[in-house]
Amino acid sequence: MEAYLLNLGVLISLYAILAVTLNFIMGYAGIYSLAHAVFFGTGAYAGASVALNFSASIFVMVPTAMLCAAALSLLLALPALRVRGEYFVAASLGLQVLAVTVFAEWKAVTGGIGGLIGIPPVDIAGFEIYSPGSFFILSLVTLAAVVAITRLLVRSSFGRSLKAIRDSESAALAFGKNIALIKTTSVVISAALAAIAGSLYAAYMSFINVESFMLDTSVLIMAMVIIGGTGTQLGPIVGAALLLILPGALSYLSFLPQTEIGSIQQILYGLGMAVLMIFRPGGIVGRGRAETGEGEA
């Protein structure tokens, strides 16, 4: 039981990292990306490759993963500079589909659909971390660090510039802000931080394949942010916890027929998403509609 809760805790922490980093560009820069799973995946594959071939040390694995994701994120920054709103969403969707194809076909690195197996546990100064208990602490500490970093950034002058761009690009331009640089930097930071979650995920699961990094995952992360509350500090974490606990909790409803439980879970998950958006569009933590941010073209 304890291990089950710890396992859930690890997953929540890792997904919370993803949600927090996505919230960083969604909530503060107005960049609504449907490609966050790409950086999650890039981090996971990069981390796993390093761990399998060179060293499982966290100080080698994580930075490499971050670098790879940061480099790739320039592909997302490109459309972010050119278009807004639904056009950008579609562009990020395109990137997501392309990335899934590459994940599934670049067999030398990703193992194809079969994925990578036997990824060694992460190593911190000679200690191997793989039990749910110790890994939970590691992921929690990482989450805290990521939250601290984004919080610091949001409150700095960089964060103020971001919000200025989100609210009105032309006004920000008039104030002499370098919009291209600020937007690109925010995308790069977000992707690099998401890659940390990816590499830890790979080490924890010891198995990854493309199915964990598909469009559904991107939507799930986005749903976590929006359901929790876009542009809030706590929202993404609450959203991640809620969406990961819900399916597990549902499987305890023993009066449901076992064969249909999977479908019922999915139906409730889907309906829950819709109902929350209808009655609480600002998210659970959100203070109302002012915080949701508009994504119009």
Binding site: A3, F207, N209, E211, S212, G248, S251, G262, Q265
Partner: peptide, 22 residues
């Protein structure tokens, strides 16, 4: 005791953890 894997690895790992530990 059935757990739904949806034939997906991550779901399966969560389900397996539950079967093993709970």
């Amino acid at each position: 005791r059935y757990e739904d894997s949806q034939a997906l690895p991550q779901r399966a790992v969560v389900g397996m953890t539950k079967l093993v530990n709970v």
